[in-house]
Write a protein that binds this DNA or RNA. Sequence first.
DNA 1: ATGAAAGCGCTAACAT
DNA 2: ATGTTAGCGCTTTCAT
Lengths: 341, 341
Amino acid sequence: MTITIKHIADKAGVSRGTVDRVLNGRTGVKPEVRERVLAIAKEMDYSPNVAAKALAYSKKPILFGVVMPPREISFFDEVRRGIQNAADELKDLGIRLEYEYVNNRKQEESAAAIDKLVEMGADGILFSAMDNDLTRASIDRAVKQGVPVVTFNSDVENSSRVCFIGQDLPKSGRIAAGLLSRILKADSKVLVVTGSLNFHAHRSRVKSFQDNLQQTRSDIEIVNVVEGFDQYELTFSQIDQALHQEPGIEGIYMATGDVGACIDAIKRHGKEGKVKVVCNDLLPETERGMKEGIIDFTIVQNPSMQGYRALRILFDHRFLGKPPEIEYYFTETNIMIPESM
Amino acid sequence: MTITIKHIADKAGVSRGTVDRVLNGRTGVKPEVRERVLAIAKEMDYSPNVAAKALAYSKKPILFGVVMPPREISFFDEVRRGIQNAADELKDLGIRLEYEYVNNRKQEESAAAIDKLVEMGADGILFSAMDNDLTRASIDRAVKQGVPVVTFNSDVENSSRVCFIGQDLPKSGRIAAGLLSRILKADSKVLVVTGSLNFHAHRSRVKSFQDNLQQTRSDIEIVNVVEGFDQYELTFSQIDQALHQEPGIEGIYMATGDVGACIDAIKRHGKEGKVKVVCNDLLPETERGMKEGIIDFTIVQNPSMQGYRALRILFDHRFLGKPPEIEYYFTETNIMIPESM
DNA sequence: ATGAAAGCGCTAACAT
DNA sequence: ATGTTAGCGCTTTCAT
């Protein structure tokens, strides 16, 4: 038989109201009573009934804030879809969502969004935007006020967010190395393109790629690691230049950055299909590149699952009292080829 | 504001009990009243509150039967895990599971399991076992009695099951062709291994593989398509023989069948790493083959998601009154390399 | 600090 | 054929 607060109340010789106060950390219970109730709940292995809780909360649902880049950033379409899927499932389970779309280049916006949500009385926050001192401070403040923050897709390091859900960057670099090592012949030359080596996230894939390629295919030479700073023009000219200087390049790893620029540079040199390309994610340009036979493999991070899991984790935490078990949740790292589409 | 049966009852000038009878297809309502209530519900865009429904059902939960192969079949570990995940999420939402493990070689067992569950009063059945006339008949009988059946992982064709959730077989064959076409050099010879071409499911991958390879790489020759009937001995001898007769084989596509046999045959010929191998799924032997550098790629079908989705679909159908929108639900087809593990 | 009781939306048993 | 009512397990308001 399943244990309810009534059972606990009876055993503890108190009312259901008191048990509720204890179990939900509300004030106004004598410490010794609290202890006793807690002990009994544990002993009976009590866990709350989701449906009942949800129904009781339906008057005043729990509010979760979602901070993420606006609709224009197409990469986040999938992430948003995942959040929406989870929200649909939890629709009647006593939660409500409040979205805050922020320009992820402006750090004040990200920080302000968190403050605003806390102000509104949010019971938890899903966050995916700028990693900087201002947002870090806002997150720390929110958490201190009892509002847990879960970061997704891109983390805010050294903050007090409860956990992060996103991709395993070293794994994606390792897989990229594995793929190129299987399609390049002996003594090939490889170019690596990234955004900025100043960012941990960008460096991480590159480092792992280098380490793994070196280890398994020491005959392959990485001729250069160039930075495109996530801008089309810069990326294009970097790749263009590299292909000029080293006509022998047979493989490109687009660790981060503008895939469209890479496609165009390759076309300019008439190297379609001759240079093997491995990149990340599945944006419209990537699809185009795959269909045109320029991109051979792309490594994807399951963005919709990131959104879905982030919301479920926050729900389990706030609603069911099950804190996240680990600090880093990694979504699957998958490989796609043109035939996968 | 959200619509409840109370609103409908008021507007229709009847009691909540009557609305409940109509909305849940129970008997004992005058046809004209039924019409009216239905019309109003539609007009008000009513959808039931999950939490409330779940709570009310907690006395007598909805019973779902699950028919699948026993624990010994390790492939199904993941599928079972997916079902369990969904069951945990739905734990308090008024459903209960009853497992029936059947030997998927014995057709009587599969059919009997369905009959037994219907007998027990199951409100829906998840089925993954033998596709034959006996089970087909059982499924048809169950459905006729109002017990919807959802098949997962392997379908029962031409039966009245409401939908199937599993992999996209042609896609997996197409991806296999795409992979081999990227790692084999010009004029390579390829061997295809499958279970039995008599089975639609086994034939499907092979056909798609052939078609796609032919189309993109007409220089590659498929020297033979052999059948191993899912037995180690037969598979081993078939591959062994093929490697003898055609020492020039540089690629093997294990469409279905015993991967361990393939690994051993390659070892016997000292062809580790020389023959490129693409196979399916991720069983312990596959992992071993990948670690030993014998298997280059394996194409996986996300088995845990098959279990998870199957249960959610049945839940949505029976509990929320949302019938499946499509007949075939395909889980993602992913590519793994040794570095993916 | 604690108890009692109403109510969340729905189902089911009982009444009529 | 239809209305009434007592729960389902939990939260919250109002008493005490």
